[in-house]
Write a protein that binds this DNA or RNA. Sequence first.
DNA 1: TAAGTATATAATTATGTGCTTATATATACA
DNA 2: TGTATATATAAGCACATAATTATATACTTA
Lengths: 114, 114
Amino acid sequence: MLQTKIEIEEATGILKLLGDKTRLTMLKLIDEQTCCVCEFVEIFQTSQPSISQHLRKLKDVGLVKEERKGQWIFYSVNNKSAYYSFIKPILDQLPDQNDKLKQLEEKGTRISCC
Amino acid sequence: MLQTKIEIEEATGILKLLGDKTRLTMLKLIDEQTCCVCEFVEIFQTSQPSISQHLRKLKDVGLVKEERKGQWIFYSVNNKSAYYSFIKPILDQLPDQNDKLKQLEEKGTRISCC
DNA sequence: TAAGTATATAATTATGTGCTTATATATACA
DNA sequence: TGTATATATAAGCACATAATTATATACTTA
């Protein structure tokens, strides 16, 4: 695939967002899956507002999309984003994070699959 | 080429470094060229200590290498770095920055070519 | 060796970022 | 409609980061 060019300033904005452990892991997780906020809270063992704020930043640049299903809001990577081809090669070099979701399934706290 | 995996925490460290306009532009510039500190100072229109500190951070993780030639120290991307295959796809998506070096050549302040 | 140029380092300041606490909004269900 | 659950937002604080200023070090050349 021919890569599209991205301006330096846009690139630094995106890279700044990826330069955070929580957000980068999130993106890797939801590149091929879907997660809701409370799952992230459990996975990252942090507060709900903190997770919401990270997701907000990713949403603001269009990297993730949300879909409400009842009381839950499910997040996934927006592969229609103009930046998707920029971040995909990065995500592909990261180790799989699915063990984190497996742990939720074992504890019975996984929601997204329903 | 089969990509090597990089741990999430290492990746965020590297991405944090790339998430800065000066450093990202620097890396793109010296991926295939060589520049010395005073050239960066002129290109980025900033102070010499600021440039040195950016280079220091890149050097600390092994992303760049330095070579002294007389009074000048020339910097270039260290393509032997374990992280090179991680950052290369990122740099490749950035627009060419060679116009900045051309401007130095036109002004007669380009050093590295000698 | 003295003066000039190039670069590095240290200390300080200014700004940015992430997390917490508190509160608001939205949905579900009894 | 009232309560519980899920999520978002706002304000404040703590910490991190980038730039500046001042100074030190290294090399060059007269």
